[in-house]
Amino acid sequence: MNNNNLPHVAIAILYRQGKFLLQLRDDISGIAHPGKWAFFGGHIEPRETPEVAMKRELIEEISYAPDTVWEFGVYYDTHVVRHVFYAPLTVELKDLVLGEGWDMGLLTTGEIKAGKAYSENAGMERSLGEFHQKILLDFMNKYGNLID
């Protein structure tokens, strides 16, 4: 697969007390994964490393950047290359400021396996993005002991 012309994004798996922080994307057409639970993160700017991009996006989206992050892997599909990092979330959910998206929440491993979770702001259950669920299931298989 030729990845040279695909956009690259940097995304973060943030975990706290056995749960994962996800963003409920705005439910508007024209954006990736509208109305679905997805990772925080975004496009890597020119001359920016994936790690720097991920930290910049977290500050923009939730006013938080972890002190230390680790690379989990790179996921390719036909539309985008995802650089995935992980780190513990060291603050309470109430201490984050949602700057982008419809909602955010700490999802349980059960919700991730089921592929859906309730959103207070939406007032309904919403699905996880398909790739986001796959990445989280891979992470839970490899590092499940980290999150408990």
Results as ranks from 00 to 15, higher is better:
Asn3Glu: 15
Asn3Asp: 13
Asn3Trp: 11
Pro7Gln: 05
Ile11Met: 11
Ile13Gln: 07
Tyr15Ala: 04
Tyr15Cys: 04
Gly18Ala: 06
Gln23Asp: 00
Asp26Thr: 07
Ile28Thr: 06
Gly30Ser: 10
Trp37Lys: 08
Ala38Phe: 12
Glu45Phe: 10
Glu45Tyr: 07
Arg47Cys: 10
Glu48Met: 09
Glu48Val: 02
Pro50Asn: 04
Pro50Ser: 03
Arg56His: 14
Glu57Gly: 01
Glu61Leu: 00
Glu61Gly: 00
Ser63Thr: 13
Ser63His: 15
Ser63Pro: 03
Ala65Asn: 01
Pro66Gly: 01
Glu71Lys: 12
Glu71His: 11
Phe72Trp: 15
Tyr76Cys: 07
Asp77His: 05
Val81Gly: 05
Tyr86Thr: 08
Ala87Asn: 04
Glu92Ile: 04
Lys94Ala: 14
Leu96Cys: 01
Val97Glu: 15
Gly99Thr: 07
Glu100Asp: 15
Gly101Arg: 08
Asp103Lys: 03
Thr109Ile: 10
Lys116Ala: 07
Lys116Asn: 12
Ser119Asp: 03
Glu120Trp: 08
Asn121Arg: 11
Ala122Gly: 10
Ala122Leu: 14
Gly123Arg: 02
Met124Asp: 07
Met124Ile: 01
Leu128Val: 01
Glu130Gly: 12
Phe131Gln: 09
Phe131Ser: 10
His132Ser: 13
Gln133Asn: 01
Met140His: 05
Asn141Glu: 14
Tyr143Pro: 00
Leu146Tyr: 14
Ile147Glu: 13
